[in-house]
């Protein structure tokens, strides 16, 4: 174990925390503009310190634990939810040289680790001993496992085209054409499923504030609550990066414009994905629970299965360059 083993993750953690701070501000600003208002604009110039103040406020809030709660599990749940969201970032490559762990099974690693968060959400709802919290967490788990299937299946087309699970290898195989074009069905299914995995509008039923008073984290206050929210935004980072890598060609330039360094190409596509998530949140209403489950199992799952065989056909037809 050399210095980079710990120094690397600490550096990335700072970057991610900075990203989360300003992604929240950006989200509130963009949603404000889309709804014809200003968004946060009081703290600091242009509201730049708004999230910092929010974090400080959460830090000095009293930490209440309900009388009937399972104390040990109540305390463990936010940690179980947060840690996987950060650990998945180990496998994400930013450019050919800038990466933390060049796992041969990078994609599988991401999918496997990210599903641990579900356990954190379930134990949080269970430990709270509150009916809203338990209902919210059960719904959340039902949603997350239902959409994990299309998420996992839709990337098989990408794996077939690239012939590897290594994320660097997947980006390298998109030199000619980004997978969003030949794998358009896979991309659409993956994107919808990733919205559901992120618990974001239109799939934010677990947190439906008007029905479940915020769902599984209703009993959490202060920094324990902050860790659930942090986990969600770290997943926004991770999922935007993963979508960039799998479908948008990672750091490969568009139209061969290669005087812009690869890291900027990556950042550009990554920010585009983040913006897309915010745009959808400001545009679409929340869907109903029955619609949610039917969409997952009756539309996305068959589509992703068809996509696997379509990818095989595509490989036969364009066997030369794809």
């Amino acid at each position: 174990m050399n210095g980079w083993t710990l120094f690397g993750p600490v550096t990335l953690l700072s970057v991610v925390l900075l990203f989360v701070t300003y992604a929240i501000l950006f989200e509130r600003k963009v949603m404000g503009w889309m709804q014809g208002r200003h968004g946060p604009n009081r703290l600091g110039p242009w509201g730049l310190l708004q999230t910092v103040a929010d974090i400080l406020k959460l830090l000095i809030k009293e930490d209440t634990i309900p009388r009937n709660a399972d104390r040990a599990m109540f305390k463990a749940a936010p940690v179980i939810a947060f840690v996987p969201s950060f650990v998945v970032l180990a496998a994400i490559p930013y450019t050919k040289g800038l990466l933390f762990s060049d796992l041969a099974v990078g994609l599988l690693y991401y999918i496997a680790i990210s599903s641990i968060t579900t356990i954190g959400i379930l134990s949080g709802g269970w430990a709270s001993n509150n009916k809203y919290a338990l209902l919210g967490s059960m719904r959340s788990v039902a949603q997350m496992i239902s959409y994990e299937i299309p998420l996992v299946m839709s990337v098989i087309g990408v794996v077939m085209a690239a012939g590897t699970l290594n994320l660097t290898g997947i980006v390298e195989s998109q030199k000619e054409v980004w997978f969003i074009l030949p794998q358009i069905i896979g991309f659409v299914v993956f994107f919808i499923a990733s919205l559901a995995e992120l618990n974001r509008t239109p799939f934010d039923l677990p947190e439906a504030e008007s029905e479940l008073v915020a769902g599984y984290h209703v009993e959490y206050s202060g920094f324990r609550f902050a860790f659930f929210m942090l986990a969600e935004y770290v997943y926004v980072y991770a999922m935007a990066a993963l979508t960039t890598i799998l479908f948008l060609g990672g750091w490969n330039p568009l139209f061969g414009i290669d005087f812009i360094p690869p890291i900027f190409w990556f950042a550009l596509k990554f920010l585009l994905m983040v913006f897309l998530l915010i745009w959808i949140r400001a545009t679409l209403p929340r869907i109903r629970m029955d619609q949610l489950m039917q969409l997952g199992w009756k539309v996305l799952l068959p589509l992703s299965l068809i996509n696997i065989f379509l990818s095989a056909v595509l490989k036969e037809v364009f066997s030369g360059w794809y």
Partner: peptide
């Protein structure tokens, strides 16, 4: 590669 993952878990 896997030591790096351990580093991520510790920092996390």
């Amino acid at each position: 590669n896997y030591l790096s993952v351990v580093g991520f878990i510790l920092v996390g």
